[in-house]
Design a protein around this nucleic acid. Structure first.
Lengths: 358, 358
DNA sequence: TTGTACGCGTTATCAT
DNA sequence: ATGATAACGCGTACAA
């Protein structure tokens, strides 16, 4: 068939050179069969919309010509793409892995694709990511927590793309949130250690300065401590690498005349670093100092002693976020009637996992 | 300013209803300033291409109107999008994490975006992912290893999108590869254990049936064993979950009259599962049986005893793949002259990490 | 440096 | 059930 400057000279009077990217288009398939583009288009949108005989011929032509639908063109024409954007502080790493995974699976199952970006707990990076993702007119946008720059908030306020936030929960916030309460996590940790009889308890912050959710956990922890008449202690690591930061915190908090008898870490990475350092230094856990983390990362149960931690509903958040998004998309597609049927989710719960380290 | 049916009635004689998605466009910015679209377009492509005074006015209008460039339209017009597709067997999970991370960072640093899909070691899922990703006319496509379905290979052969494969190395394959030799990994493992004096050595396959690279490692292992006059042993786990599969393999291989004295696992997930099971069952490692894995996952050094393993150049593969892609893109942009300057990469090396488990 | 004209490949709309 | 035509919003080519 025509290959360069295809379908140019025949119908147009003022034939300039067309730009034609060289890829097989809907039109090539249609011309090949002597039918119109729109029939082929319909075949891809919903094969039932063309007659059975045509369906077979199109399928064959598509295979023969190696046609791959151009989603960019489709997205432009229909003003919405089958892409969903997601911004996560850390793509790799155990923290968000289960959420990404479950969300990604749901997205794929619905025939959508995932545009993924990491912010590294930086507002600026998140802002750039959001701008870029919105440029693709995604069907939805998923962010992590409610801490954004002003410019990001402005973009969110202006866009018509539905936005959902995960790993956080506030009942009244404008973007619906799928997650749990961070202060409550801090409270759980404090209560657990107080119940166990520990009294000189410290909280170790994340070395990533932008992890504001970790500070919310810290505040929840401090609140319960004070309610029980115990002054909470804190440590802010200087070391950047989590394992080193955990080690640093351990030694700092055991040093001096009034050493801590229990330490809550902002996450399991820090906690496991401390646990290993304790093991190597011959510091008995939990006899001399109890350690606990947050996240229940896969290795936390493999350590000796096993790490007590708080397990967030990581998988569930991805699943629920996807359900919410597709319910909303379906509702819009089905007309406004059922749009009200999609309900704001409730807060999810975290689970205290008690192992040997406390 | 005009909001619905904007810029419709004025210039077109046969004014039908325009479709207009409602978002702020380049044209809105241009109209706002009384200049042409193309000047605003140039501003976004390269601010240096418009005069300083105009530059400031445009910047202000963009901020005021909240314009976000429509990458879909831009992609269609220019026939290439600033998106890079990546298909990885497992997005989350420790195996490919470092590769994804380093690649993602490089992509972001170049102002591109990452469209990520997982195949779960399934050829069919990979095929769907590739089709979907190619639909976005990505600037490049990154796959994992060389095992694809015929349909996938056909798409790769036909597309003009540059393709790179990672986590694999074959010097002559058509898509350039950025990675290492899997058989060599298997050979390294066998040599290490034989040197240590182990003789009844078994290899445990991955419970994920589609992980063909793991079979290449197995074959390299078997080759060296036979060279040394030792018959290799194998175990194929039935359990799906890696930790359980590792446990199952451990007990199966220690059972019977001629138990294994060393076991190589397809990856660290399996190996650590076995290590923990051994610990709980009071099986001395490495005295009664030595264990080693592949991957050097973050927790492998945290186990007691530390897990001997082979560390792939995970980070480096992501970095190198990105370098290759952007060098190629730059070369194309700069004209064909320098296109030859981009050289096929050499094989990367894995590193044997000896800890206490062997 | 700035502007005009038009195509990129698809889908929405209207017509048969 | 199928077709004709005009958008979608931007970048390329060419002109001034």
């Amino acid at each position: 068939m025509r290959n360069t400057a295809k379908h140019a000279a025949e119908e147009e009077p003022h034939t300039r050179l067309r730009r034609n990217s060289g890829r097989v288009t809907l039109r090539d398939v249609a011309d090949h069969l002597g039918i119109s583009q729109i029939s082929v288009s319909r075949y891809f949108q919903d094969p039932e919309r063309v007659s059975g005989s045509l369906r077979e011929r199109i399928a064959q032509a598509v295979a023969q010509l190696g046609y791959v639908p151009n989603l960019v063109a489709g997205g432009l024409a229909s003003a919405h793409s089958r892409v969903i954007g997601m911004v996560i502080p850390n793509i790799s790493g155990p923290i968000f892995a289960a959420t990404i995974q479950s969300f990604s699976d749901a997205v794929t199952a619905h025939g959508y694709q995932l545009l993924l970006a990491s912010s590294y707990f930086s507002g600026e990076q998140e802002e750039n990511a959001v701008r870029g993702l919105l440029g693709w007119s995604p069907a939805a946008l998923v962010l992590t927590s409610h801490f954004h720059t002003q410019a990001t908030e402005a973009m969110l306020a202006r866009t018509s793309v539905p936005v959902i936030e995960t790993w956080d929960y506030q009942a009244r916030r404008k973007p619906w949130q799928v997650g749990f309460s961070h202060p409550e996590v801090g409270r759980m940790a404090a209560r657990h250690l107080l119940e166990r009889g520990y009294r000189r308890i410290a909280f170790v912050q994340n070395s990533a300065a932008g992890d504001f959710s970790a500070l919310e956990r810290r505040d929840g922890f401090a609140e319960v401590m004070r309610e029980h008449g115990r002054e909470p202690r804190f440590h802010v690591p200087q070391e950047a690498q989590p394992a080193h930061a955990g080690r640093e915190a351990l030694f700092a908090l055991l040093d001096g005349p009034d050493p801590a008898d229990a330490i809550v870490f902002a996450n399991d990475n820090l906690a496991s670093g401390a646990l290993l350092a304790a093991q190597r230094a011959g510091i008995a856990v939990p006899q001399r100092v109890a350690l606990m983390g947050f996240g229940d990362f896969p290795f936390s149960e493999m350590l000796t002693p096993g790490l007590t931690t708080i397990r967030p509903p990581a998988r569930q958040m991805g699943v629920l976020a996807a359900e919410l998004i597709f319910a909303r998309l379906d509702a819009v597609q089905a007309g406004k009637e059922r749009a009200g049927a999609v309900r704001r989710p409730k807060a999810l719960a975290c689970e205290l996992i008690v192992r040997e380290s406390t």
